[in-house]
Design a binder for these strands. Structure first.
Lengths: 339, 339
DNA sequence: TTGAAAGCGCTAACAT
DNA sequence: ATGTTAGCGCTTTCAA
C-alpha cells in the first residue's frame, strides 16, 4: 500500500501538495504539478488511508443510517418499506458525495456511539426509538435526523408522514362505501406512535360519520408466521363482526387476505381491506390492494438533504411530515346490507 | 470528547495501561488498576477513537457487506432474499464481536477500495459480480467471500446453493404432475450464472422424462413494474402453450400469478407455478406458492463464519454450495390433458 | 505489572 | 504555488 509520502517523493513534491491534489483544492496547485502527481497516483494505485484522514481532519465524509431492530430472528429489512427507504437514502448519500454505511443493531445508542467513534459526519435513525432520542442527540455533535419518530421533544428533527391523515383517508373511504363497523390491525409494540396515529385518524373519520364507538375492534398483531391467522380469528370473532379492516402495513394486509381466503371470506365482497404504504407488491397481488400511499423515497431524500445541508452549513432543507394519499384498487367494496 | 491521555492522567496511570484495559489484555494489568481505570472511563464517558485505533493497529474490527446494484431507481434490498441475507449477516457479524457495516454501490470494485482504505478486516460480496472478482481479490489482503457467484476461478471462496439442483427439483416435480411443456422465467441480465443454472437444472429434469426440447419457452424478465405483464403475455403466446412455469424467484412467481389471474387463467388448474427461495411472503399469498427452498440465513452464517475464521487465523469453516429442497404448497396441479 | 519513545498516514496552520 | 512544522489519538516495541 502506497502512502502519501511515497507518492510525494516519486513526484518530487511535498506531501502537502499531494494532499491538495487528492482533495481537489482548486488553485492551490499548478496544472502541471497536478498532472504529475496524478500520474504517480495512477501508476502506484495509491488510495489515501481514510482512518488517517479522519483522524487528522476530524471528519469521515460518511453518513450512516442507523436501524433499530428487535431481538429475535426477525429481519428488519424484510419489511419492504424499510428496504425502499434504505435504498433511497443510499442513493442520495452517494449522490451528495458522501460514503454511505448502514448499521443495524438492537442497541441504537451504543451503536451510535460506535459510529461516532468513527467520526461519521451525519446520522439518520430509522426504527422505533423513543426514550433513546435524547441520549442519541446528546451523545453527538453531528447532525441527526429521525425517521417516523413521535418524540415528545418538538426540537427533534425528523422526516415522516402525517400518519393520522393516512388513517383518516382510509376511514373516510370506508365510510363512503357504507361501512360502519371497521376494524384496525397493526403491530402496536413494534413502533412508537406510528400505529397509534393511524388508528386515531381512522377513528376520527368513522366518528365523523356518527358512529358511536368507532373502530372498536383493534387487533395488536406482529409480523410472526402465525400472527395473521390469530388476527383474522380475532377479526371474525368480533361482535358485531366488522365489514372492513385497515391494516397498518401492506404486508400485514396481504397476510390478512390470505387468512380470510382460508376462511372462505371473500375480499372485498365479504370483507374490505385497506393497507398502508403502497409497496410494489400491493399492485401485484389479486385482488390488488387498496392502500394509503406514502412516498418512501421522498422521505429518504428529505432526510439526506437535511443532514447534508447541516454538514455543509448550507441552507437547511426543512423537515416535517408529508401528506399520504389514498390509492384505490380492488379490495374495498360496498358494505353488505348497507342502505 | 475525552481522549486516552485524559483518562490516563485522571487515573494516574500511563496511556498504555489505559490501552491495555480498553483492549482487555488479560494479565497485563492488575485488578486494582483495571478497576480504577474503568471507573474513570465510566465517569468521563470515554470512547476510544476508532480512526486512531485503525490507523495505529492497521485493523478496524469491521466486517463489511458489499452489495452490487444496478443503475436506476430499483432498490436492491427490496428483494426479500437480499434483505434476509443482510439481516443474517449482520447478526452473525455482531455476535462474533465485530462491527457490521453495509455498503451498496454500482461500482463494487471502487467501493471495495474505499472500504479497504478504512481498513475493514473482512468483506462479503453479494450481487452479480463476474469480471470484477479478480480485481476485488487482488485489491485487498483481507478475507473476501462471494455470495451466489459463478466465477470461472475455482479458487474464489463463496457460499451459495446448488442452483442446478434447485431447477432440477422443480422440473422433476412438474414432470411427475404430468407436465411436459414447461416454461422458465427469470432475470438473466441481473445475475451472473444463478438464473442460468436454475434453467439448466429444470431442463435436465424435463429431458430425463424424454421431452425433446425441454423448456423451450424461456422468458427474460426483470423486476420492473410492467415486466410481469410482458412475461405472462409471452407465456400465453408461446406455441404450444406451456402448462407450467418455473420462476427464478418467489416475487416474480407472485407477479406472474397476479397477471395470470387478470387473464382469467387459474392457478394451478390452468397453469402451474413454482417459485424459488421460499421467502415468508410465499406462504401468505393464495394459493400458497410451491417453491424451491434455500436456507438464506444459513448462507449468511457460513459466509461470516468463514471470514471470521480467516481473520482470526482459526480453522476456516468450509464454503460451498448447499442443497435446496422443494416445498409443496398449492400452485402445482396435474397437467390438463395429462394421461 | 507498568511506562517511555516512536510512529501509523494524513491534514491544519502557517511560512516562504 | 509549494514547503515546513506539528500534531490528530491510539498502539507497537522495547525497557524497567
Amino acid at each position: 500500500m502506497a502512502t502519501i509520502r511515497e507518492v510525494a517523493e516519486a513526484a518530487g513534491v511535498s506531501r502537502m501538495t499531494v494532499s491538495n491534489v487528492i482533495n481537489g483544492r482548486q488553485g492551490k496547485v499548478s496544472a502541471r504539478t497536478v498532472e504529475r502527481v496524478e500520474a504517480v497516483i495512477a501508476a502506484t494505485g495509491y488510495v489515501p488511508d481514510e482512518s488517517a484522514r479522519a483522524l487528522s481532519s476530524r471528519s469521515s465524509r460518511i453518513i450512516a443510517l442507523l436501524m433499530h431492530h428487535r431481538p429475535g430472528p426477525e429481519v428488519h429489512l424484510a419489511n419492504p418499506h424499510d428496504a425502499i427507504f434504505v435504498g433511497s437514502v443510499e442513493r442520495a448519500v452517494t449522490a451528495a458525495g458522501f460514503t454511505f454505511i448502514m448499521a443495524s443493531a438492537e442497541d441504537v445508542v451504543a451503536t451510535a456511539r460506535t459510529l461516532g467513534a468513527w467520526r461519521v459526519d451525519g446520522l439518520i435513525v430509522l426504527g422505533s426509538v423513543a426514550d433513546e432520542v435524547n441520549d442519541l442527540v446528546a451523545g453527538t455533535d453531528r447532525p441527526v435526523v429521525f425517521v417516523d419518530n413521535y418524540s415528545q421533544d418538538p426540537e427533534v428533527l425528523l422526516v415522516g408522514i402525517d400518519d393520522e391523515l393516512g388513517g383518516h383517508l382510509a376511514g373516510a373511504h370506508l365510510i363512503t362505501a357504507g361501512h360502519r363497523e371497521v376494524a384496525f390491525a397493526g403491530p402496536f409494540g413494534a413502533t412508537v406512535g406510528v400505529v397509534e396515529h393511524r388508528l386515531r385518524g381512522l377513528r376520527s373519520a368513522v366518528a365523523q360519520a356518527g358512529v358511536e364507538e368507532p373502530a372498536r375492534c383493534v387487533i395488536d398483531v406482529g409480523n410472526g408466521p402465525g400472527d395473521a391467522a390469530h388476527a383474522v380469528a380475532a377479526l371474525l370473532a368480533a361482535e358485531p363482526r366488522p365489514t372492513a379492516v385497515l391494516a397498518a402495513s401492506d404486508v400485514l394486509a396481504i397476510g390478512l387476505m390470505g387468512q380470510l381466503s382460508d376462511h372462505a371470506i371473500r375480499v372485498p365482497e365479504d370483507m374490505s381491506v385497506i393497507g398502508f404504504d403502497d409497496v410494489p407488491l400491493s399492485a401485484l397481488v389479486r385482488p390488488a390492494l387498496t392502500t394509503v400511499r406514502q412516498d418512501i423515497a421522498a422521505k429518504g431524500n428529505s432526510a439526506v438533504a437535511n443532514v447534508v445541508g447541516r454538514i455543509r452549513g448550507d441552507a437547511v432543507p426543512p423537515t416535517g411530515r408529508a401528506d399520504p394519499t389514498l390509492v384505490v384498487r380492488g379490495t374495498v367494496a360496498r358494505a353488505p346490507f348497507a342502505d
